[in-house]
Design a protein around this nucleic acid. Structure first.
Lengths: 324, 324
DNA sequence: TCGGCATGCTGAAACGTTTCAGCATAAGCC
DNA sequence: GGCTTATGCTGAAACGTTTCAGCATGCCGA
């Protein structure tokens, strides 16, 4: 049987006559190798595990796609799992991936599960996580510069003349956990406001109850008429989409009456009406860093990897309404 | 070792004391079962393969999610692969899934590959495809009622008073293949127009060069000012999103000046401004049919499964502009 | 002619589970 | 108490590969 394996995998030394004979028999029998037996016998696979929160959110879909493309360049495939923001699913996904002997695992989620992280560390499989966790052996972190992003947003709005900001944030706790990246964006916003020492800058927060677009719409419904604001900063493009709807349903014009900013620069954001000003998280850099950290866990991974963000100004931001 | 397996899989007979002891040791060692060994030993997996065209398009993401949820109810997982509309990737994905001894395969793509289909049929693995192919042993087809959907759209527009329709279609051929579901929508539109015997109904087609939203925008750019139309029917919600942008960038108001209709009822469609009138392909029925056909290939699968569509009227359609 | 070496092939062990026959032990019945 | 049956546990075989030591053969140069 050794020879057959050698023919199939093209290593070992096989004479041409034997090779062609084996190939003839193989194609005659319609034989094809068993993936599981094969992976069981060699003790590794060429697969990277990718865990995301939710495929409905284009940010995650786009990120997964970018990682897949990048991994393909190294001959690796990816195995993609979605958690629906639940730490429990998160944990199950990680367990399954580790059981599948993937050669690296990327945790690209908003939520966090300490048990899952322990499992990963204990397994010794190289890992990358987004924004959350601590450096450890074989484990790197890519930190999105939310703070920097929020800073540029706030500066942008102040420069336009806005003084009354509404931050639509998601402090919804699922199973006792806040979504981590959302938390960082909160903090980034708060820090940015503190840093911008501008007279009579007023900020308000409104909490939403989930990561979907609907939540953004409800957020506007809940504060409209009660709080005064001339610009809205949404924690996510998805949420911004809901904010659009909440405002437009009330006859508010964007950006003439109120400006709106998102976060993620998802594909659809430039197709909104008006096109959304948002913070870009460069998918290309993100995927490159991720794959590199997984495939060469020795190299740069020891340093915490910082992912720069950048403000994309489109048409949803403008100077505030004179009257307001 | 038999006992450990019994504890893990909850079959066999194990005393409570042994069970808890085993569990204690398991969690202490951070042990988790090896997927490959496990699947090698039992001679089947609890996994359904799902092949979609593109995760960026929310239709596919939502469909995959729906199938995953439905499969989970039966204790099955899914293995998701994206083809990016390329028959070649499509084939590779199918090969990989078959080698992984999945217990069923769902081809939820717009494109088609005959070789891949042959492989599936030869393997004897139950399969479902969307819109394309012929019935065969263990192989069912879910036919989306594109024709019925298009019919209701055309009737809706005619009833509103529209007589000049523009159909934005995708006749782009990748590797010589047209996207199949898009082709059916074309034909559905043509049939609907033929069926509606209304005086001086005028229809135009414009071809786009790809399945993305950008293509819709370019389509408008290419015909605007040259062709007269009061309503646009886009082959896809994604394309409709581009159409919105194309129109709005030219100062056209939707629906006052021109009405727009999409197809798919993706999540974001109701968040567009104005909310998009579109054809819903019920994800819930789709996923139920799919999983049922894969898990019980004997039963109803012999009949071709028809998936009804329904018109969702939102605010992107209205009577045509009086002047026009 | 013989040792050394390259080449091609073979068979067995290993991978980590599941399954199942079989063995102890406990429980129920007359 | 002996018989039967239910219950819990054990060990070995099997799953289909890969890997690797080792064997046979042929070739070369001395």
């Amino acid at each position: 049987m050794g020879t057959i394996s050698a023919v199939l995998n093209g290593n070992g030394r096989v004479s041409n006559t034997t090779r062609s004979h084996v190939q003839a028999v193989i194609s005659e029998l319609g034989y094809h190798p068993d993936f599981f037996a094969s992976n069981l016998a060699r003790r590794h696979t060429q697969v990277l595990g990718v865990v995301v929160s939710n495929l409905q959110n284009p940010f995650f879909a786009e990120t997964a796609q970018a990682i897949e493309d990048e991994a393909a360049r190294y001959g690796y495939q990816i195995s993609l799992m979605a958690t629906n923001f639940s730490p429990e699913h998160h944990r199950a996904a990680v367990k399954q991936l580790l059981g599948a002997r993937i050669s690296g695992i990327a945790i690209m989620t908003s939520e966090y599960d300490a048990v899952a992280r322990q499992l990963i560390l204990a397994s010794g499989v190289p890992s990358v996580s987004l924004d959350v966790g601590k450096l450890a052996k074989h484990s790197s972190i890519i930190r999105v510069d939310s703070r920097g992003g929020m800073r540029t947003v706030v500066e942008h709005l102040i420069e336009l003349g806005h003084r009354d900001l509404l931050f639509v944030r998601n402090s919804y706790k699922k199973d006792g956990q806040r979504l981590f990246s959302h938390k960082l964006r909160d903090e980034g916003f708060a820090a940015a406001v503190r840093a911008c020492r501008v007279g009579r800058l007023k900020t308000n927060m409104v909490d939403i109850s989930g990561p979907g677009a609907d939540a953004g719409e409800r957020a506007i419904a809940s504060v409209f008429g009660k709080i005064h604001f001339s610009a809205v900063i949404a924690v996510t493009d998805m949420v911004a989409m809901g904010v659009y709807r909440g405002l437009q349903a009330r006859g508010i014009r964007i950006p003439e009456d109120i400006s709106v900013v998102g976060f993620d620069n998802t594909y659809f954001s430039r197709f909104l009406n008006p096109p959304l000003t948002t913070i870009d998280i460069p998918r290309c850099d993100l995927s490159k860093m991720t794959v590199e950290a997984l495939l060469r866990p020795g190299a740069k991974s020891k340093k915490s990897l910082k992912l720069a963000t950048r403000l994309v100004v489109r048409e949803s931001t403008a100077p505030p309404h004179p009257k307001a």
